[in-house]
Amino acid sequence: MIKQLAGLQLLMMLFILTSFIQGRLHANQFSYVFPPNISLQIIDQHEESGGKIRLTALIESRLGTLEDLEVFFESSKDMQILSNTSKLKTLPPGAPRKVKILAVKTSKIADELGSWLKMGVRFTPDYQAIRTYIADKSIYPDDFERQKLVNIVDKNVGAEARYLEAVRHFIKAD
């Protein structure tokens, strides 16, 4: 009898849990997105004496030739990046560029997210390459949804929009 009651109460608890959790999330509303223009990676990290950290970043075009690239850096307060902002006129496909980054630890404490370094790249995408890509019906078969992307490209071309992507490298504490 006691076992039966315990079983029933367990069922009740399960009922409570399932009743109060609205398990059905609303599903994804379909929308196309653009292909990536650029790939940014931190591919190497070396720590040296004197609190120095050397990083190697890789910048690579993913779509067409990117233009007027400005590379800049930021870090948490406990780090200072000694590398300078740099510029690159063009970045064609298949020609990745390595960026060497030197940082040193400061006497300040890290912020609540820990220690991190960030490399940002501001660039003009290859709008013609984007147009060509999104015109591919095998990739974007839905005419209506594809047209929305075309309209967005038109707006960005009209605004001469510059894009900004970044990669943020968190230095492991463990």
Partner: peptide, 26 residues
């Protein structure tokens, strides 16, 4: 998702962090 927008490398990033409203009784 800064640093993870390259969908050719992070092939499921779209679905993994797609916008949503999850509702729970508290």
């Amino acid at each position: 998702i800064t640093g993870y927008t390259d969908t050719s490398r992070f092939t499921t990033i779209k679905e993994d962090f797609w916008p949503q409203n999850s509702r729970v009784y508290k």
